[in-house]
Amino acid sequence: MPGEVGEIELFVERDHLTFGSETVFQDDHPRRSIPIKLDRAGVRRVVFLPGIERPEVLNLLDVLTTELDETSIEDDVVTLMWQKQFTHVKTFVLDELSENERFDESKVGLSDPGQTEREAESAAQEPWVASEEQHRLDVENARRLAEECAGTKSKLTPPTPEEVESLRREVELQETCDVSGELADVLFDVVAGSREDASSANLRNVLGQLVVMRMRTADFAGANGLIQQMQDLAKKRGLDPAQARHLGELTGRYSPRSTSRK
């Protein structure tokens, strides 16, 4: 009996339940299978606590054998289990909002009884930490990309649209204002040394957007400085005429102009 052996911890692995390293139950029937039902509901682990009595086990079986309406949002195993208010059965549910496999301990109100490898991994991938870290990496990558391009002018690898988009996104973000100066510098280097194609046109557009970003942050002198640099670049000897034309068009579009006034 569970009460005699202490806590029993079962892991849900798609169509089977495991206890330790052993499969203790398997059923691959798509509608009837208890493991599949749990798996679909995001349940990753079921723990039976010491002291569990027959009525609670029967209640649990009742829930697990209920035919579920798959289209219903409310009618799922987790909800039904929650409604039963089990006191000796704890479920560990995958956080639906997170793509990482992370147990949502808040849903079960139980401190973690045994740190498994999977959980340790998950803990290392807390989403909010990852996104901040990811952001830092994105900025770093954007800078490295631009630096690499600037350093190898003779055989430039045209940036992919994704990379250009990444750069564009970065310069639009307020917190990257401090690197926008450097970014502008390397962008100028890249633009000046690249062949005319769709990617280099995109990079020039990013320069134009940097101008607007500076305007929006009320760095008018900075915006003017960028426009001046773009104009200088457009006049550079040996620059592809199409690039010069585009630069001229951009500076014309963003140059300060007086509105009609008396």
Binding site: S180, G181, A184, V212, R214, M215, R216, T217, A218, D219, F220, A221, G222, A223, N224, G225, R253, Y254, S255, P256, R257, S258, T259
Partner: peptide
């Protein structure tokens, strides 16, 4: 007018250009 437009995130490019024309030295150049 300046502060109103600066505070307005929806200011269009034309409005911004007008501001730059009025206050070309505002802000710090990088």
């Amino acid at each position: 007018m300046k502060d109103v437009l600066i505070a307005n995130p929806d200011a269009n490019v034309e409005e911004l250009q007008a501001l730059v024309a009025y206050f070309p030295r505002r802000g710090s150049s990088n």
